[in-house]
Design a binder for these strands. Sequence first.
DNA 1: GAATTGACAGACTAGTTGGTCTGTAGTTAA
DNA 2: TTAACTACAGACCAACTAGTCTGTCAATTC
Lengths: 202, 202
Amino acid sequence: MSKAAVRNPDATRQNILQVAFEEILLKGYQGLRVDEVLNKTGFTKGAFYHHFKSKKELGHAVIDEVLKPWIHERWIEPLKQVKDPINDLIKMMNDSRAEINIKELHTGCPLNNLTHEMSPLDESFRVRIVAIWEIWYEALAETFERGQQTGQIRKDVNPHNIARFLIATIEGIIGQCKCYMSDQAFDEAGKCLQEYVKTLRA
Amino acid sequence: MSKAAVRNPDATRQNILQVAFEEILLKGYQGLRVDEVLNKTGFTKGAFYHHFKSKKELGHAVIDEVLKPWIHERWIEPLKQVKDPINDLIKMMNDSRAEINIKELHTGCPLNNLTHEMSPLDESFRVRIVAIWEIWYEALAETFERGQQTGQIRKDVNPHNIARFLIATIEGIIGQCKCYMSDQAFDEAGKCLQEYVKTLRA
DNA sequence: GAATTGACAGACTAGTTGGTCTGTAGTTAA
DNA sequence: TTAACTACAGACCAACTAGTCTGTCAATTC
């Protein structure tokens, strides 16, 4: 009875999910300790296993209820608003860089982090994470298709191929920054990336 | 006395290192179990802790004595032999693709795997892994510099920037293949990558 | 307002895991 | 030959960790 004089189960769940997400980013799913989440949230085993059947189900919930909405807010929604694909995308990539610098360089891209550590561990993780990549991939491809229709993007390029290429490159660059704990890779590769994107202009 | 009627300490160490490396690729360093390595090699705790002070030191040895030589053999040496940067690099990337298909798609790039999981865990891991990236990075940049001197590569591009860009892109593509467990990403993004590389021709 | 259900608290457990320690057989040097 | 050292074998341990179980108080229902 040390906590929760007034009850709020939704807030409890969200609290646990958020802390678990941060722990996974720092230490990975395998390095995530249920006890540590409970320490940081102030809840107990009783609360945790009331909301989650197991650690694995917590992993599922983190992917579906934290990571997925984050990608939506960070990439999918902005992509829908794009009017000038070339310039807007360059701007979004620069925003991405700024965001990386803010929350410490060693964190990297959350989606890519979970991809590399969690997806090989269990098929249930992998399918959930792939679903998120697909959403991003399709949203990017659609952005290029719209650009082709409005005559802003060359019509001889394949929107899906470009989408996959850009996603791969962005993640690769962020991965380098993460390991080097420096944004030098962003300076170097970013220049090439911007030049490449500009070649797509009609 | 169930094993090693005849002794060969070097082979013992290499055996442990190789199995540990494969285990890390499959389950990550945190998922690596000393006992499992001993099961698969047939050795015991006594042997293990005679050769390695701790699990962490095993991690160091895997990076320095398995991963690093692998990169040397797979990338550094071939890069030294490059006569025609554009065509040879495209060939090397296709080789890389073939290799990925052979040892199951979910494995991904060893260097990138260890980068994402191990480098955030401990600074001693990170500095060792960064050192390997640097070797690859410099070897690639030097290849482009040679290409510029021989007039095969445009002189208005920065060799180091291209090197970083290519490394990031290659790793990003392999990462996508790993998560999707499909080489579709290689088909899609690979086309863009090849086109980009060709634009570097003088 | 009594009863049922939901949302926790917290002690406890069983299985795992990195690491230790003692013993012993092969190897090498004198 | 023998003493000293190397390269293991394998039992053992302490710490950790996901998960359980019983109890309790708040919230909802009737």
